[in-house]
């Protein structure tokens, strides 16, 4: 592509038609390149699904699927091993839910403030700082959780230990906040100015304009932001591994120590011999995690579709 561009001016003096043909050829190459890139993503996705199924399904010959899903005992290195992932499943749902409940209202409110209320100078200064937050490695967040947040949570709720689901959920909400703020601010900023002008012309206050015009109009962007945030919370591993406590019981409250599906995979994959039973069980956990995120995505898509139709009316 680069070559095409540099040689084109040299031959331009010769014939105009040759140049045009060259440009058309360049366009074809670029088109093909983009098509290939798009296909590659699909191939990679299919490959991942294939490997998850191939490595994960054989474990169900040892542990039936219902026992695997609803069993509460996970002893992969015992003889014979038992695999029950109910505690991990419940922990993942609990931590993700709490972190979403914390991060979405704060995130969307911050985005609305930045897009609609804040002076341009504040916005230009604050937004890049928030985006830098998104780049903090998860190990660092784990350290912060261990050193600062867990003693605080422990004394606040008078717990025997600060390593618990709540600590992990708060850290995760801090990790998904920058994504939610940044992407939904972009969406709100893109709402046509005419919409707001019309709203103000009808006598609406700034609050009413934000609540009834800006947020609904930017809803698809905000929903995408929330999905990205939830996706980060479900998939985050290192922070959770470090601060969630790692107990194997089905958590009864958010202040119990717990192990999520991602943490169970990370802490078990190292000593699993390729093709062994534990290896298969861990891939099956990965498969279920994949299905869970897929379900969340499809659900969000549906909700979004309905919202869009409502707004269009």
């Amino acid at each position: 592509m680069v070559q095409e561009n540099t040689t084109a001016p040299a031959t331009a003096a010769g014939s105009n038609q040759g140049l045009r043909r060259r440009l058309r050829l360049g366009e074809k190459v670029i088109e093909g390149w983009i098509l290939l890139a798009g296909l590659l993503a699909i191939v990679v996705l299919l490959g991942i699904i294939f490997i998850l199924l191939k490595e994960g399904l054989p474990v169900f010959a040892h542990t039936p699927p219902w026992e695997f899903l609803f069993g509460t005992k996970w002893y992969p290195v015992s003889d014979p091993p038992t695999f029950g992932i109910a505690p991990f499943f419940v922990s993942t749902l609990m931590i993700t839910l709490i972190s979403t409940v914390i991060s979405v209202p704060i995130g969307v409110a911050t985005a609305a403030y930045l897009a609609e209320v804040a002076p341009v100078k504040v916005r230009e200064a604050v937004k890049p700082i928030i985006e830098i937050l998104a780049g903090i490695p998860s190990v660092m967040m784990g350290f912060i959780g261990l050193a600062l947040l867990s003693p605080f949570v422990q004394s606040l709720f008078n717990l025997p230990t600060g390593l618990c689901g709540l600590t992990a959920a708060i850290m995760l909400s801090m990790m998904s906040l920058p994504i939610i703020v940044s992407v939904s601010e972009d969406a709100m900023h893109a709402v046509p100015y005419e919409f707001k002008e019309a709203s103000y012309a009808l006598g609406a206050t700034r609050w009413e304009t934000i609540w009834h015009v800006c947020i609904p109009a930017a809803l698809s962007g905000i929903a995408a932001a929330i999905m990205l945030g939830v996706g980060r919370a479900i998939g985050e591993t290192m922070t959770v591994l470090m601060v969630a406590g790692g107990a194997l019981a089905v958590p009864a409250s958010p202040t119990d120590p717990m192990t999520t599906m991602t943490a169970a995979i990370a802490s078990g994959i190292g000593n699993a011999v390729r093709g062994g039973l534990q290896y298969q069980a861990i891939f099956a956990v990965g498969l279920i995690l994949f299905i869970l995120t897929l379900a969340v995505n499809i659900f969000a898509e549906r909700v979004l579709e309905r919202q869009k139709r409502k707004f269009a009316r």
Partner: peptide, 15 residues
């Protein structure tokens, strides 16, 4: 006998 399910499993000795 197995470890109880309230035991915290930590990823490193230092922690």
């Amino acid at each position: 006998l197995e470890y109880g399910d309230k035991v915290l499993f930590l990823p490193s000795t230092e922690e």
